[in-house]
């Protein structure tokens, strides 16, 4: 791509032309990957996913990437999941269960602490969390922790919290909003690095299609 400095010779460049950050983890959805900076989910950063109601496919959206990451030797941590994470479904989606760790904190403060520790430890490839409360300060801490540990942090926000969060700003590197659609979800990117908000893009999440992603061994996170 040939792009020129808007003001030649000054070293000023468009944010969209900034050198791509570290390559991301392919999401398994080609239509989404082209929109994400680095060609996939960002490692070492926070991803915030706003969901109007649970059950529309928000977890299936992550599964191909989680399956891929579980083949690296780091943990996939699920923190404060709202229900039982069903092992047979995870295994069927090619997620290596021996790398899955579930954390059930009792208090909200413990939950944020656990997310931060897991992100910062560097032993987790991905940390998927359902935080009870988050404010901007907590999110910034988590974003810094994710950068320090090189982990992919995913925060889910449901219902009212999602609506409120959409209006407020967020230090997360990537923010998505999901809207249910026939056979899948419509994904809008509310914030990404090096690009404008974009979307929505329709993704097909029907079980038989989503897990048909070829298992690519040899990936190292």
């Amino acid at each position: 791509m040939s792009r020129q400095d808007p003001v030649p010779g000054t070293g000023v460049w468009r944010a969209g032309d900034a050198p791509a950050s570290a390559p991301g983890v392919p999401s398994g959805f080609a239509r989404l990957d082209v929109l994400l900076p680095g060609g996939g989910w960002p490692c070492g950063a926070l991803t915030e996913i706003l969901v109007p109601c649970p059950g529309i496919g928000e977890l299936r959206l992550l599964l191909p990437a989680l399956a891929r990451l579980s083949r690296s030797r780091r943990w996939i941590a699920f923190i404060a999941p709202p229900h039982v994470l069903y092992a047979p479904a995870l295994a069927a989606a090619q997620v290596d269960l021996s790398r899955v760790m579930l954390v059930h904190p009792r208090a909200a403060a413990d939950g944020l602490w656990a997310v931060e520790q897991s992100l910062r430890a560097g032993t987790c490839a991905a940390v998927v969390a359902w935080p009870a409360v988050t404010d901007t300060r907590a999110l910034r801490r988590l974003q810094l922790a994710a950068e320090a540990g090189g982990s992919w942090g995913v925060l889910f926000r449901h219902g009212q919290a999602a609506a409120a969060a959409a209006a407020a700003g967020s230090p997360a590197a990537l923010r998505l909003r999901l809207v249910p659609a026939a056979g899948g979800v419509d994904v809008s990117i509310l914030k990404r690095r090096g690009g404008w908000p974009v979307g929505p893009v329709s993704l097909d999440l029907e079980p038989d299609h989503a897990v048909a992603m070829p298992a690519s061994a040899g990936f190292r996170a």
Partner: peptide, 16 residues
């Protein structure tokens, strides 16, 4: 570290 603060049962893995 997680277990020391949250308790032993609060951190576990999954099996089939």
């Amino acid at each position: 570290r997680l277990r020391a603060r949250l308790g032993r049962a609060a951190v576990h893995g999954l099996g089939l």
